[in-house]
């Protein structure tokens, strides 16, 4: 293990981690927004949007991000729309992530007992209030592990950005391997970098999951 090599290229990794985090975080946030919209459209059965959401979810989650990114980066300029690599990256990640988040939220909503829907309305809450105070908290609690897994997965998906010349972590690792052939060192730093990014994220979601557990729920074991 060449420690000189590790020290020399650490700054590159740190910068790349910053880029990965920035683009990943933006992607996660926008994905949640898009996912929530899709979920609401389907839950409240808004006519046209519901169909659109359905088609979008199937298309986005059944195709690879790499190809989606290529279309955005190389395809759009042919019809006159030239987006920067970073914009393509965020749009691509959101496109993919939104579909996954929508499904996570949906499974969370469906895990809530119908009894909860009905009781809330019986007690005189409006559907909106019901959703906000009764359903959503429980739905989120069930959905959190899945959302957490999606967030971690999206950060790892950012490795695809290396294909459009964005200097993210995977780009730097492959770069160093290709130039200097110090594969072990490069991959070690790659793993440690992802560790530094993902472990806090994973831990945060675990804590969130534990805090959102309500009485009488989640106690099957």
């Amino acid at each position: 293990m060449d420690t000189e090599f590790l020290r020399r290229f650490l700054p590159m990794y740190v910068r790349a981690a910053g880029l990965t985090l920035r683009l990943g975080a933006a992607g996660i946030v926008f994905s949640l927004a898009v996912g929530a919209l899709c979920c609401l459209a389907r839950q409240f059965r808004i006519p046209v949007l519901r169909r659109v959401a359905g088609v979008y979810i199937e298309l986005a989650r059944n195709t690879p991000l790499l190809v989606q990114l290529f279309f955005l980066y190389f395809g759009l300029p042919k019809i006159g729309v030239k987006l920067s690599a970073e914009t393509c990256a965020i749009v691509g990640l959101t496109f993919l992530g939104g579909a996954y988040m929508a499904e996570s939220l949906r499974s969370g909503l469906e895990a809530v007992d119908t009894a909860q829907h009905e009781s809330g309305l019986c007690l005189g809450l409006t559907p909106m209030q019901n959703m906000r105070y009764v359903i959503l908290p429980q739905a989120l609690a069930t959905a959190i592990p899945s959302i957490g897994a999606n967030a971690v997965f999206l950060i790892k998906e950012t490795s695809v950005f290396s294909a459009v010349a964005l200097a993210d972590l995977m780009y730097v690792a492959k770069d160093l391997i290709g130039m200097y052939y110090r594969t072990d060192e490069a991959l070690l730093m790659l793993t440690l970098a992802y560790l530094a990014l993902l472990l806090p994220l994973s831990v945060a979601f675990s804590l969130l999951e534990r805090r959102l557990r309500h009485a009488g729920f989640g106690g099957a074991v």
Binding site: A111, D113, T142, P145, S146, A149, G216, F217, G218, G219, A220, V221
Partner: peptide, 19 residues
């Protein structure tokens, strides 16, 4: 590994009264 976590999540989301 991931599947295991999903299964765990699904099992623990079943209300206690079922058991």
């Amino acid at each position: 590994g991931e599947m295991g976590d999903l299964v765990r999540g699904a099992i623990t989301s079943i209300p206690v009264h079922q058991r």
